[in-house]
Amino acid sequence: MTNTLIFVDLASDDPAAAGRFYAEVFGWENDARPEGIYHRMVPGGFFQHKDGSDSQIGNLHLGIFDAANARPHPDPAGVEPRTIAAPGRKPRIWILIGDDDSAERILSAAEERGATILWRNHYWAEFNGYNHAFADPWGNEILLWGKAGENPQIPADYTRE
């Protein structure tokens, strides 16, 4: 396949702290390359075949870069802008909740570490999933996705669309 998405980066004014945040909230490996400049978050595991067995394709990674000097760039000093984005719409990152985890645990862990909860308990029929969202301490919007499965029983306290 051509033009394959391989990576997504988030801006932070403190990549080391952001790396710790994502490692603690999601249990990912925080691979500093180098520390404080660029952090690659490694979720581990592999994409699965339809039968549930692992393929040879590793899960996608998430990068965290320093907004003050986004690397890589041909100019060692970097270029403007050198700040994280201001309030307003930004890209959103969707995270599939693992079968051995829960939205409530993730949201609690994120909030304890400075995240702002944007919403909880929403069902999106178009894609048959439960979703919840938070903004990390740097303003990046993270949406959690839970599989609803066949004939989902939507809890009464969930909003719907």
Score class of each variant (00 low, 15 high):
Gly63Cys: 08
Arg82Trp: 04
Pro87Lys: 07
Pro152Cys: 07
Lys50Cys: 13
Glu161Cys: 12
Asp51Ser: 09
Gly88Ile: 01
Arg89Ser: 08
His61Phe: 08
Ile93Cys: 07
Gly139Asn: 03
Gly114Cys: 10
Lys147Met: 08
Ala103Phe: 10
Ala148Val: 05
Gly36Val: 07
Gln48Tyr: 07
Glu104Ile: 12
Trp145Leu: 09
Glu24Tyr: 02
Ala135Asp: 08
Ala125Thr: 07
Arg113Ile: 00
Gly63Ala: 14
Ser53Ala: 12
Ala133Pro: 03
Asp100Met: 10
Ile6Gln: 12
Gly78Ile: 04
Trp119Pro: 01
Gly19Lys: 04
Phe7Ala: 10
Asp100Arg: 14
Lys90Gly: 06
His73Pro: 05
Arg160Thr: 10
Val79Cys: 12
Ala156Asp: 15
Ala23Arg: 11
Asp14Leu: 11
Gly27Asp: 08
Ile64Ser: 05
Val25His: 05
Pro72Thr: 06
Glu161Pro: 07
Leu5Gln: 14
Asp136Thr: 00
His122Pro: 00
Pro152Gln: 02
Asp157Gly: 02
Ile142Met: 03
Asp101Val: 15
Tyr123Asp: 05
Ile57Asn: 14
Trp124Arg: 02
Asp101Ser: 15
Asn59Tyr: 10
Ala23Met: 09
Lys147Leu: 08
Arg71Phe: 14
Ile6Glu: 13
Ile93Pro: 03
Ala148Gln: 09
Trp138Cys: 01
Leu62Thr: 06
Trp138Leu: 02
Pro74Asp: 14
Asn140Met: 00
Leu118Pro: 02
Pro34Trp: 14
Glu24Cys: 04
Pro91Tyr: 04
Ala110Ile: 04
Val8Asp: 05
Gly36Tyr: 10
Pro81Met: 04
Arg92Asp: 09
Asn151Glu: 15
Gly146Tyr: 03
Asn3Ile: 13
Ala85Tyr: 01
Asn69Met: 00
Pro137Tyr: 02
Ala67Thr: 00
Leu60Lys: 05
Val42Arg: 11
His132Gln: 10
Asp136Asn: 01
Glu112Gln: 14
Ala77Glu: 14
Trp28Asp: 03
Asn128Glu: 09
Lys50Leu: 13
Pro43Gly: 07
Ile117Asp: 09
Ala17Gln: 07
Ile117Gly: 01
